[in-house]
Amino acid sequence: MDLLATADPVAEGDLVCSGKGCRAPAAWGLLWNNPKIHTPQRRKVWLACTDHCAHLEEFLGARGFLKQTVPVADLDRFDPDARP
């Protein structure tokens, strides 16, 4: 299964790290899934700068949620201001 195909798209524009209090540019997308609340195919995305990537991977991995880490450039994007 292509995990990127099931990942939630991330907003265009400011791609910043999901680390608490961090405003650094994101370099990585951490694809994860909480099997208690998400379907098996669903992939949520946390963004991470290089400094916080290992910490966030460890956090998600300890809970069994981490599925894959990919470069931000590989993530699908959406424009939150676009109207259908």
Rank of each mutant, 00 (worst) to 15 (best):
Met1Cys: 06
Ile37Phe: 04
Gln68Met: 13
Glu12His: 14
Thr50Phe: 13
Cys53Val: 10
Val70Trp: 03
Thr69Cys: 02
Cys17Pro: 06
Ala27Trp: 07
Cys49Ala: 07
His38Ser: 05
Cys17Gly: 06
Asp51Tyr: 04
Ala5Gln: 15
Pro84Ala: 09
Leu56Tyr: 02
Leu75Glu: 07
Val10Lys: 03
Leu3Val: 11
Gly21Pro: 01
Lys44Gln: 13
Val45Arg: 00
Ala24Ser: 11
Asp74Met: 03
Lys44Leu: 08
Asp2Pro: 10
Pro9Met: 03
Cys53Glu: 12
Asp51Val: 04
Trp46Arg: 14
Cys49Leu: 11
Ala5Tyr: 03
Leu47Gln: 02
Gln41Thr: 14
Trp46Ser: 01
Ala5Ser: 12
Ala48Lys: 04
Leu4Tyr: 06
Arg23Cys: 11
Arg23Ala: 15
Leu30Trp: 01
Ala11Trp: 02
Lys44Ile: 01
Asn34Asp: 13
His55Leu: 14
Asp79Leu: 02
Thr50Val: 13
Val10Leu: 05
Ala62Asn: 08
Arg63Val: 10
Leu4Lys: 03
Asp74Ile: 12
Leu3Tyr: 10
Leu31Trp: 01
Val72Tyr: 03
Asn33His: 10
Leu31Phe: 15
Trp32Ala: 03
Lys67Trp: 11
His38Met: 09
Glu12Gln: 09
Pro40Gly: 11
Val10Arg: 07
Thr50Ser: 15
Gly64Phe: 12
Asp14Ala: 14
Pro40Gln: 12
His52Glu: 04
Asn34Val: 12
Ala73Tyr: 07
His38Cys: 12
Arg23Lys: 01
Val70Asn: 06
Glu58His: 05
Cys22His: 10
Gly29Lys: 04
Trp46Val: 03
Pro40Leu: 09
Gly64Arg: 12
Ile37Pro: 02
Gln41Trp: 08
Leu56Phe: 06
Asp74Glu: 14
Gln41Gly: 08
Pro80His: 00
Cys17Gln: 02
Met1Gly: 13
Asp2Leu: 01
Leu30Ala: 06
Leu60Gly: 06
Gly13Gln: 07
Val72Pro: 01
Leu56Ile: 12
Arg77Val: 15
Ala62Phe: 07
Trp46Met: 14
Leu31Met: 07
Ser18Gln: 14
Trp46Gln: 08
Lys20Thr: 14
Glu58Ser: 13
Leu15His: 08
Phe65Val: 13
Leu75Asn: 04
Leu60Trp: 00
Gly64Trp: 09
Gly29Glu: 02
Asn34Arg: 10
Gly13Lys: 05
Pro80Gln: 02
Gly21Val: 10
Gly29Trp: 05
Cys17Ser: 05
His38Asn: 14
Ala73Cys: 13
Pro84Asp: 05
Gly19Phe: 04
Asn34Glu: 06
Gln41Val: 15
Phe65Gln: 10
Cys22Pro: 10
His38Glu: 05
His55Cys: 15
Ala82Cys: 00
Lys44Tyr: 07
Gln68Asn: 04
Asp76Pro: 00
Ala7Trp: 02
Asp74Ala: 14
Asn34Phe: 08
Ala26Lys: 01
Pro9Ala: 03
Gly13Tyr: 01
His55Ser: 11
Gln68Thr: 04
Ala73Lys: 14
Gly64Cys: 03
Lys36Ser: 09
Asp51Cys: 04
Asp8Thr: 10
Phe65Asp: 03
Thr69Arg: 09
Gln41Tyr: 06
